[in-house]
């Protein structure tokens, strides 16, 4: 049994209680949500924190998927499993279900949360890639109830680093809903439940004439953070969807990413996957947009 270093533990009863504790305890404290990223690091003693503030009691308050019409709002404590099982979410953004099917295993999905995934800011995190693809924004709350909203690009500051301050907390993720959209996610992994070698998400919105009104691609595990690639969006916009176009987008993806060689694969291979998976997900996203998914 791997045992973490000693720490103190407190259960938060409200969001403001959690933020109050963070304010008081400073950087020696960490929130624990699903714990599936934080606790393994603590057990391996790669991370040692003096205090853990358990926010699981806030699941009532922060575990939700709400549809406002022009936005889907997902509470930070919404679990992987809830994202996977929500038919309403899958109807609007099938990319979530695609991704959740290949994230970890049922045990991890039962506990792991959307907020924890984004705040972990692991470059291989699948939900970060999904949120990047969808151009989501993050609601961050601080002391005194102050809230600010930041886009995914600003949210991830670097690997394992986010815009969330020591005394702040991510409470909600907002995903804009636009008409005639389709989305998809694909991941290459060495084994079920493993982190991505590379994964890609694509979202496409079609204009009335069938051309691409807008499109976004998000990649994971090919750079310091999951990256949206504006150049791809620019190349796709206004064009009729076609294999050559996906290929062109894939080539941009391969060129724009910055993978490293590691146990999961060589940098060359990952670049190739960025290309291949961009193509595949764009193709599927367009099919879905056309068929009304």
């Amino acid at each position: 049994m791997q045992v973490p270093a000693p720490f103190e533990y407190e259960r938060a009863t409200t969001v403001d209680h959690a933020i109050g504790l963070l304010e008081r305890l400073g950087s020696s404290a960490r929130l624990v949500a699903g714990g599936h990223s934080l606790l393994p690091m603590m057990k391996l003693r790669l991370a040692n924190f003096e205090y853990l503030i358990d926010i699981n009691p806030l699941h009532e308050e922060l575990g939700y998927i709400r549809f406002t019409g022009d936005e889907v709002r997902v509470g930070a404590l919404t679990r992987h499993r809830e994202l996977l099982e929500s038919d309403e979410l899958a109807a609007v953004f099938p990319i979530f279900r695609d991704a959740e099917r290949v994230i970890a295993d049922p045990v991890v999905r039962n506990r792991g949360t959307l907020g924890g995934s984004l705040c972990q800011a692991d470059p291989s995190e699948d939900l970060s890639a999904v949120c990047t693809t969808l151009g989501a924004s993050c609601v961050i709350r601080g002391p005194g109830g102050a809230e600010r909203v930041v886009g995914m690009e600003e949210f991830h500051v670097g690997p394992y680093e986010t815009a969330v301050g020591d005394d702040e907390m991510l409470i909600e993720v907002r995903v804009p809903v636009r008409p005639a959209g389709g989305s998809a996610y694909e991941k290459v992994e060495r084994r079920a439940g493993d982190w991505a070698v590379v994964s890609a998400g694509a979202a496409v919105w079609l204009a009335g004439d069938g051309t691409v009104a807008d499109a976004r691609v998000g990649l994971a595990a090919v750079g310091p953070n999951t990256t949206g690639i504006p150049e791809i969006s620019a190349a796709l916009r206004g064009n009729a969807p076609a294999e050559e176009l996906y290929d062109q987008a894939g080539a941009i993806a391969a060129r724009s990413c910055d993978p490293v060689t590691d146990q999961r694969g060589s940098a060359d291979y990952k670049r190739h996957l960025a290309h291949e998976l961009t193509r595949r997900t764009l193709r599927k996203a367009v099919e879905r947009a056309r068929s009304g998914h």
């Binding site: 393994p40 391996l44 295993d105 060495r190 084994r191 079920a192 439940g193 493993d194 982190w195 146990q263």
Partner: peptide, 24 residues
């Protein structure tokens, strides 16, 4: 079980040393 050039073992957890699941 792989090693880097300094002799660090790169397979020190089941996240790094993969064993198959029923899905494979």
């Amino acid at each position: 079980i792989a090693f880097d050039e300094d002799g660090n073992c790169l397979g020190a957890s089941l996240m790094d040393y993969l064993i198959p699941t029923s899905l494979e």
